[in-house]
Design a protein around this nucleic acid. Structure first.
Lengths: 307, 307
DNA sequence: TATTGATAATGAACTTTATTCATAATCCTG
DNA sequence: CAGGATTATGAATAAAGTTCATTATCAATA
């Protein structure tokens, strides 16, 4: 009798468009693929026709689907804006967001999220905590930062909450002529004698060391540089091998500038978490920031998985 | 974590504003007062404050409530429009809406609903079936009308659906000096010897006759005229008494032009139904028309109850 | 100031709906 | 045509939303 269309459905539809397929849309919405499939099926039964062609990627929407998407585009921004206004009404206070990072790569994806955030919460003062801190989460209890990007949850810090961000594969980067490119995957022993080219961070912050080389007692030479491009240049010219997030080097690999190789049997994976003071964990602007980070990363970084 | 605001909530809020209080809002939405109360409570717990001041009629909204209403006003018309577009996509065919009425009073409330309908479904041809038909529902199987306003459901007509509209009290209208105005209510015997002033319709169409005079075997003189104003003029000048819907004469009563009196112990009530061909019963434009009629009547006719 | 009537709130039972889980079907690609 | 990825499906589960029955609150009024 009465209309059954809800915002939930519109969110699903836009997620489907943004994510490219149902499974990814589900990930974006923190739901299962099944849930969305059922949702769409229901809508289709109500409106008497398919909403999109299933077998196409990116999805091609039918007239019905397109009309609903048009509605979504018109509505959701207003809903979003209203909810932020309401959060502001509730909190009153403006707040600040001082961001600390542990590694350089973070900036690649942090910037777009920060830009989006600035547009949505103009009254929140945003800053980057200068310098690179080996353990940025420690800055939070000291009230020197409000948000820190870290690669491990729960450091035993009290009063600090960790929000899962995403998980990504770390691959070994080799020059095109390197002998090891033939191997299906690299084991710890393969690194012996090689020079490991990395960002300038302490050993214990490197996932390759922490998860592979450390446990197996293998030590390697280290050489470091700040920029990804410089790092790859060194690898390409045979000065050593590196281990970097797949998403960070995807474009270089596609161009064939360097080669890559899985590390360990099932691959080596790193995870990132956003740390913030428990006191701010529930603050709408903080939740929105975490959401924006997750969303923009998921939509722009190839091959990552949301946590 | 994720937003829980849904269109449902926005609809509740606008209904609350339109209807004036929670109970009436519930009636408008075909829900219970309790349901809406729970809904609002939930919203208030989420947004951390009241949405409106309960004890005031009409409701006074807080900043939070007002912001949500602002959102509703921006969103709901678009949702509505989209759903109509989708219905058009599904049905394809334009359709027509020929309306037949049984009594003159209907036009008072039919007009605004028809105007609203015309704006929403410009492609549907709307017409009024000329002449007053003692039994307009009969025109539907003959395909001479698509919608008929009748005062009884289920005439034993097959292929015709009856949609409950609303229920209203019918009161006796007396001149200010009439002896009967002193009585707490009128019984059948009180009508004996009086002239009953009515619209020009057959006896069996009049609720007073059908429900009160008929069963008790009392017959009265009849005199009829087409216009409500003329009818009241006759009553006021002592030519007889009348029995009319309370909502139709409310303004005359408020001005003290005539007096009124309850008919029978618990009062006399009439009900109206919208009849249409079963085949069209589920057509979006027909459902929308019924909805518009119910809604506009509920919001404009004083003292009625939705069925 | 009690009484009544109207409106709103509440907690528990209930119903409906949404989501997940486990699995099967389908589609695409190499 | 196998294997991987995506989608569909039915049943089970979880989570709501809604109603019911009752109580609380408030305003008008006797």
């Amino acid at each position: 009798m009465s209309s059954l269309l809800e915002l939930r459905h519109l969110r699903t539809l836009t997620a489907l468009r943004d994510a490219g397929n149902l499974s990814r849309a589900a990930e974006l919405l923190n739901l299962t693929q099944s849930a969305l499939s059922h949702q769409l099926k229901l809508l289709e039964s109500v409106y008497g026709g398919a909403l999109y062609e299933r077998k196409s990627a990116p999805p091609r929407f039918t007239a019905i689907g397109a009309r609903l998407l048009e509605l979504s585009d018109r509505l959701l921004p207003h809903v979003d804006a209203a909810e932020r206004d309401l959060a502001r009404l509730a909190a009153g206070t403006a707040g600040q967001l001082r961001i600390a990072v542990e590694c350089h790569t973070c900036f690649d994806w942090l910037m777009p999220a920060m830009d989006a955030f600035r547009a949505r919460w103009p009254e929140v003062e945003m800053d980057i905590v200068s310098g690179f801190n080996p353990e940025p989460a420690a800055l939070i209890p000291q009230d020197k930062a409000d948000f820190a990007v870290v690669s491990t949850d729960g450091n035993g810090l009290t009063g600090v909450d960790f929000h899962p961000l995403f998980r990504f594969e770390i691959v070994a980067i080799l020059s095109r002529s390197h002998a090891l490119v033939e191997k299906p995957w690299l084991e710890a022993a393969d690194f012996a004698g090689e020079t490991l080219i990395t960002y300038p961070v302490p050993d214990e912050m490197l996932d390759v060391v922490r998860q592979l080389l450390g446990p197996s007692g293998i030590t390697v030479q280290r050489r470091s540089t700040e920029l990804t491009a410089a790092l790859l240049q060194l690898v390409a010219s045979g000065r050593g091998i590196s281990a970097l997030p797949l998403w960070a080097v995807k474009s270089y690999l596609d161009r064939g500038y360097v080669k890559h190789c899985t590390i360990g049997r099932g691959g080596l994976y790193g995870s990132l978490y956003g740390a913030c003071a428990s006191r701010l964990s529930g603050a709408p602007y903080m939740m929105d920031f975490v959401r924006l980070v997750r969303e923009s990363c998921f939509l722009t970084l190839p091959g990552i998985t949301l946590l």
